[in-house]
């Protein structure tokens, strides 16, 4: 399995750490109720098909990546950095 890191190019799966569904990106606000947190932390669509999940280029550029892929075929459709590209260059 290979992922194309937007910064580093195509790399073997062993360079990456996996962290599950991109649900983790949608952190509830402080004060949201227990159900919101339960949904955020635990409940998952867990699709058999296209999914969006999070990978960390641990042995590369340390980017967190959002990967669009198929959980049945393992086909990779897209790899994007989680952090939006810096706007207007360096501050």
């Amino acid at each position: 399995m290979r992922l194309t890191c937007p910064l580093c190019g195509p790399r073997d799966r062993r360079e990456f750490y996996y962290y599950g569904s991109d649900d983790y990106l949608n952190r509830p606000a402080e004060g949201d109720g227990p159900q919101a947190w339960d949904a955020y932390l635990h409940l998952r669509d867990n699709p058999a098909g296209i999914t969006h999940d999070l990978w960390y280029h641990d042995m590369g550029c340390s980017s967190w990546l959002r990967v669009t892929r198929n959980t049945v075929t393992h086909e990779i459709h897209a790899v994007d950095a989680v952090a939006a590209p810096a706007k207007g260059g360096a501050k």
Binding site: Y19, Y24, R27, L54, D58, S62, W64, A81, V82, A83
Partner: peptide
């Protein structure tokens, strides 16, 4: 380290 990278990139990537 991984946790910090995640919190930063996922929740506050625009912070300096």
């Amino acid at each position: 380290m991984r946790h910090l990278d995640f919190v930063h990139q996922a929740f506050c990537a625009d912070w300096d």
